[in-house]
Computed example of a mutant assay.
Amino acid sequence: MAQTAPPSAIGGAITAVPGIKVGHFTEARRPTGCTVILTEEGATAGVDVRGAAPGTRETDLLNPANLVEKVHAILLSGGSAFGLEAATGVVRWLEERGIGYPAGPARVPIVPAAILFDLTVGDHRIRPDAAAGYAACEAARAEAPAEGSVGAGTGATVGKLFGMARAMKGGIGTASLKVGAITVGAIVAVNAVGDVIDPATGTVVAGARDAEGRRPVGATAAVLRGELPAAMQAGMATTIGVVATDAALTKAQCQRLAGAAHDGLARSIDPIHTMSDGDTVFALSTGKAGLPGNMMALGAIVPHVMAAAVLRAVRAARGIEPSPPGVSELG
């Protein structure tokens, strides 16, 4: 069951997993937005938070020891903590359709969420709100979603270890892989302090550039040579994403799957899980394959799929207009 193709050769989208839809809202007034991953029939979920500056909603609910078994959507948003408001719009959209956890006379939609920091790009007073989350749901489809500078990846940047003037554009990417009867997919908004690395070659695909802005320098290599990072406020970055499978998993297994997805981030982003990142990955199991998940196999596959989504995010990204001083798109 091993996947021998490098992450750069993995295509597809998280919507290849039956039971998953994705919708973007891209803010026209400044580079920001949000992305919703809909599971209208409900999906078992887990989460793993590894960054030191996370911004999240309803992650405690996903603890295997806690009550609710299924979620109805996951929201990824720009706008820092303000962007969590977009989840309210997702809840409203689901409630209008009678989707949610039975609670007395109501059905309460369960919508965990995570945000990334993009407030330094454009007017920080403009950020995803409830209307943005609702619009993302309206746009959700089972077809492969757009990638790059859309949705939660609109204002994303990478390679910020030496300041925004030497950064490059990040974005949102997705990938999937079918092994036997099981499908695994990932979607990720890449807004990292670190560089994006092709794990097959070790090459910096997008990241901190030299002082002249001509080429990536390799952030970690520069630190090892003695170049000190810029002073950064905690929470100035963050990579957030979702992995999903149609295998039937428990909440505890989903939590482990989210942890395995972080291995994919560690292979493709360097450095990762810093004090200025709030890196968070959710895992979803729709169970549509009707088969139990082999956690050994899934743990081997998921990092490849997540790393592929990271590479696709920056390769599809486009420059910001007007761009912050020095921020460059890939290529």
Rank of each mutant, 00 (worst) to 15 (best):
F162P: 00
A181G: 06
M296R: 14
G148W: 10
D129F: 04
L76Y: 07
L265G: 00
T39S: 02
A260D: 10
G299M: 05
M296L: 15
T44D: 01
D123V: 00
A297D: 15
A244Y: 14
T15V: 08
L228D: 04
D123L: 07
V47N: 07
R225I: 02
A136E: 13
V205Q: 03
A206P: 03
I320V: 14
P6C: 10
G46A: 05
L249W: 02
I197M: 06
P324N: 10
E58G: 01
V205E: 14
A221C: 02
E69L: 14
L291H: 06
A28Q: 13
G278N: 03
V108G: 01
T250Y: 11
V179R: 12
A144F: 10
A181R: 13
L228N: 04
C254M: 05
T238R: 01
G218I: 08
M275Y: 15
S149T: 11
V150D: 12
A65W: 11
V184E: 14
V223L: 12
A206L: 02
T286R: 09
V150T: 11
G180M: 12
G259D: 10
R256A: 05
E40H: 00
R256W: 12
P31L: 04
A230M: 01
A221S: 04
Y134M: 13
A146T: 01
G171L: 08
I182M: 12
L311P: 05
P7Y: 15
Q3I: 15
G235F: 09
A5K: 14
V314A: 04
I320N: 02
L228V: 13
A144H: 08
D210G: 03
G293P: 05
A140R: 07
T44R: 07
V47H: 05
A65G: 01
